[in-house]
Design a binder for these strands. Structure first.
Length: 595
RNA sequence: GGAGCCAUAGCUCAAUUGGUUAGAGCGCUGCCCUGUCACGGCAGAGGUUGCGGGUUCGAGACCCGUUGGCUCCGCCA
């Protein structure tokens, strides 16, 4: 890195014993000052690191006077001589620890007010950190997070470039398609009453690029969704978005695996073993009660319906007779948990819509359980065998429709892992492809079918007859999600490229022909002009960076994130605008607050 | 829209069962200190305990409300 110019000759992590005697000039912030009355030391910091500056009052009085008066985070320019530190005062913990710069002159370039929070300690007050984000980003940890993110995108770009992917930008001012998340809208001045929408993803544009014959496209794409925020959700976020023509799911998956392998090798020095395991949606739900199972621990769900098929336990029997399932999970060693914890587990079940959560404490004195008296010795033996139950275990049961029973125990499983102190090492990377998602999910409240992934997802060809027969819930999609340690890192699919099939899917989703033409006419039109088969995937860059950084929130890997309410406390966005601006847009505010 | 947790000095936290003048470390200010690197020493400033109400002889603590922050559910094709 070339750095020398009139401001500075080196950066603060650059100088070594071989530079002793050299006259240098450094610029940086006062990381720490140690004033010995006479002698003053300053750790001078820039992006690259730290050098110790020493002020000798007898030799360089004026410089020392300035040095004495410095404060934390003052910005200074120092000119001086590189000197070897006296025998025994070297600092082995510092790359530049063999030398120091003897200040001959120093300029205070810009002073710093007393800091609102320390830069070298944990600060819980995130609101304050965001309000002073420019200072927060000076912290080593945050700087390294940004650097890590940079390295990720660079590795991804290198990888995809080497495989013939073209980076193409797509519009930010886009068109609203009311399916999916809520859109951010941008009013058009030139067409009053009309609005652009910020893209939730470049989905349709990248498919159009495939029709254009681009063949392999990628983009580090900003996406916008106007939904409530979470630790891993911001209203604007970034996806590594790619699409390829003439590609099978295996092609897409191997590109993702290859890119991630390169990222992990180059960014954190970890070798991933490829390919990642695959698991069908059905199996993931059956075994782990989740479509993004965390495989760092091995608590499995079991179907124990057969054991209760002839049971006296009416609640279980009724569910089974109605076509439901009885599933169970074994919390090894958790018979010890108290009533409050147990109630919390039941609350998880109820919160999801379950009727309850049966439990059995396996204790030395016998099985302690409200359902205990309904169990025959044979049933107990069968359960113990199926669940591997031994003394001290806590068995939990959900009896419900398959989907719900799985989801309930899936949540319980995560909670049990916490309770039992299962190791969840950040350095352990458990990747998984979840495949064969259902194409549709039935929305009970709306009383209609919805796309599980999105409406452009291609059904498996062998399931096309099911589509004709109206057995929508059974149709599987050529879709795949990539999961890392229980986090959905991304997902993709092979797309529909035929106008007729696309129209059929739209119709099943309850979008009539007129609306189809209105909202998706451009896509349907394009499909009639020799659209190639194609598919792709999108990876959540923020989440990937968060996991690699060992951060708790994607806010820690985004330079200027929004808080819980979509507000940036630093700039004060969003903000009201001038009446003149609104007039130009022909917008009238009808009311504030509970409008 | 719902649930939970939190709010005490600039920051991170403490304050026994409701009981004297709300403390500590860091930071800040002043003084001392010539080989430190989380330098050290002495002194000092800094608080309407988020806000409003209530219970009580007495509230940082208990109750109600409210505001703000965070986490989760809903939502996120």
């Amino acid at each position: 890195m070339r750095i020398a110019n009139r401001w500075r000759t080196h950066h603060c992590a650059q100088l070594r014993a071989t530079d002793v005697g050299r006259k240098v000039r450094l610029c940086g912030w006062v990381d720490r000052r140690r004033d010995h009355g006479g002698l003053v030391f300053v750790d001078l910091r820039d992006r690259e690191g730290v050098s110790q500056i020493v002020f000798h009052p007898e030799e360089y009085f004026e410089a020392a006077e300035i040095g004495k008066a410095l404060h934390a985070e003052d910005l200074i320019q120092v000119e001086g001589l590189v000197a070897r530190r006296p025998e025994g005062t070297e600092n082995e913990g510092l790359a530049t620890g063999e030398i120091e710069v003897v200040a001959q002159s120093v300029r205070l370039l810009n002073a710093c007010l007393p800091l609102p929070f320390p830069l070298d300690a944990v600060v819980e007050n995130e609101e304050l950190r965001l309000a002073f984000r420019f200072l927060d980003l000076r912290r080593r940890r945050m700087l390294e997070n940004l650097r890590l993110r940079h390295r990720i995108t660079r590795a991804v770009r290198d990888y995809l470039d080497a495989r013939g992917f073209l980076e193409v930008e797509t519009p930010i001012l886009s068109k609203s398609t009311p399916e999916g998340a809520r859109d951010f809208l941008v009013p058009s001045r030139l067409a009053p009453g009309s609005f652009y929408a910020l893209p939730q993803a470049p989905q349709q544009y990248k498919q159009l690029l495939m029709v254009s014959g681009i063949e392999r496209y990628y983009q580090i794409a900003r996406c916008f969704r106007d939904e409530d925020l979470r630790a891993d959700r911001q209203p604007e976020f970034t996806q590594v978005d790619l699409e390829a023509s003439f590609a099978e799911p295996e092609d897409i998956q191997s590109w993702v695996e290859g890119a991630l392998e390169k990222v992990f090798r180059e960014v954190v020095g970890t070798d991933l073993s490829l390919p990642f395991p695959r698991m069908s949606y059905r199996e993931a739900m059956d075994r782990y009660g989740s479509d993004k199972p965390d495989l760092r621990f091995g608590i499995d769900l079991y179907d124990v319906g057969e054991i209760f098929r002839g049971s006296d336990l009416k609640v279980f029997r009724a569910v089974l007779d109605a076509g439901g399932v009885v599933k169970a999970v074994n919390g090894k060693g958790l018979a010890r948990i108290g009533a409050a914890e147990l109630a919390a587990l039941e609350e998880i079940a109820r919160g999801l819509g379950g009727k309850g959560l049966a439990y059995i404490r396996v204790e030395s004195s016998g099985w302690k359980s409200p359902i205990g008296k309904f169990l025959t010795p044979g049933e107990r033996d069968a359960l113990a065998l199926a669940l591997g139950a031994t003394e001290g275990d806590l068995l939990l049961f959900a009896a419900d429709q398959w989907q719900l029973a799985c989801e309930i125990l899936g949540r319980i499983r995560l909670r049990l892992a916490d309770l039992s102190g299962e190791p969840k090492e950040h350095s352990e990377w458990k990747f998984l492809w979840v495949t064969d998602f259902p194409l549709f999910a039935f929305d009970r409240e709306e009383g209609r079918w919805e796309s599980m992934h999105h409406p452009f997802t291609r059904p498996r060809s062998e399931d096309l007859p099911l589509l004709e027969e109206g057995r929508y819930g059974e149709v599987r999609a050529l879709a795949y999600d990539i999961v890392l340690n229980g986090t959905e890192l991304g997902g993709g699919s092979i797309r529909i490229h035929e106008a007729e099939l696309q129209q059929k899917i739209f119709s099943i989703l309850g979008i009539d022909s007129e609306t189809q033409e209105q909202r998706f006419g451009h896509l349907l039109k394009a499909f009639r002009y020799g659209a190639p088969p194609h598919g792709g995937v999108a990876l959540g860059l923020d989440r990937l960076a968060m996991l690699l950084a060992g951060a708790e929130s994607i806010r820690d890997v985004i330079a200027f994130p929004k808080n819980r309410h979509g507000v940036d406390p630093l700039t004060g966005s969003p903000a009201e605008v001038d009446a003149k601006q609104l007039r130009e847009l022909r917008i009238a505010i009808s009311g504030r607050g509970n409008a």
